[in-house]
């Protein structure tokens, strides 16, 4: 039940302009989509809402890694990985902002770090493992979130975008799970 950052964060959706699919494909780096997939266009206003929810997710992910990095709980080699993963989320954030702008919407802005710390119960993080468990939970959830939103998206270019981001999140989850010594899941598919 993701609900609205629209009023809270002054989301001003522009007119429900339908962006050309090819144009959005360029924004999202998916110019290689099949011609057939380019034929349909979606409801831009609805897609803006869903992309903004995803953007909220990325803002939170970036903040979570920031909280971990500033916690002084991470060993240097782990901190390096966390910063790299955070940079991936920043790339996702920037791609989402570009796509929302291209569709005529207004991207939601991040909350304060204090807000995220409260929402994520950062005060409960007492060890490196605690930080990694939080990151793992968020990465697993984000993978499922991106996969689960695909059927609701109107613009076919966004299907591929969401799948690509979900793949990044699942890579992060696999790495974190391995670092924490979690067993390999026995059943597939693991997500979605």
């Amino acid at each position: 039940m993701i609900e609205d950052m629209k009023s809270r964060r002054s989301l001003l959706i522009g007119s429900a302009t339908t962006l050309s699919v090819a144009g959005l494909g360029v924004v999202l780096g998916s110019a290689a989509l099949p011609t057939a997939a380019r034929a349909a266009t979606g409801n831009a206003a609805q897609d803006i809402q869903l992309l903004n929810a995803a953007l909220g997710l990325e803002h939170e992910g970036i903040a979570a890694y920031q909280l971990g990095a500033e916690s002084k709980l991470l060993k240097p080699e782990v901190l390096k990985v966390a910063v790299t993963f955070q940079s991936h989320h920043k790339q996702h954030r920037d791609d989402l902002i570009a796509a929302i702008n291209k569709l005529g919407g207004k991207p939601v802005v991040a909350k304060s770090e204090a807000d995220y710390a409260k929402e994520l119960n950062a005060s409960s993080l007492k060890s490196q493992a605690d930080v990694l468990h939080l990151a793992l939970k968020l990465e697993k959830g984000a993978t499922n979130a991106y996969l689960g939103v695909i059927p609701s998206l109107g613009n076919p270019d966004l299907y591929l975008f969401a799948a690509r981001v979900a793949s990044d999140e699942s890579f992060h989850a696999a790495f974190l799970g391995s670092a924490l010594g979690e067993p390999i899941p026995e059943k597939a598919p693991m997500f979605g």
């Binding site: 039940m1 929810a53 968020l138 499922n144």
Partner: peptide, 28 residues
């Protein structure tokens, strides 16, 4: 936790609203 937890918590508003008490509640 696996599929809703990216955006929701029981007791904190995050990407989506908190969920404790959602059953029987009016939407929004």
């Amino acid at each position: 936790e696996a599929k809703c937890g990216a955006c929701h918590s029981l007791d904190a508003n995050r990407i989506g609203p908190k969920h404790r008490g959602v059953f029987g509640r009016k939407a929004g």
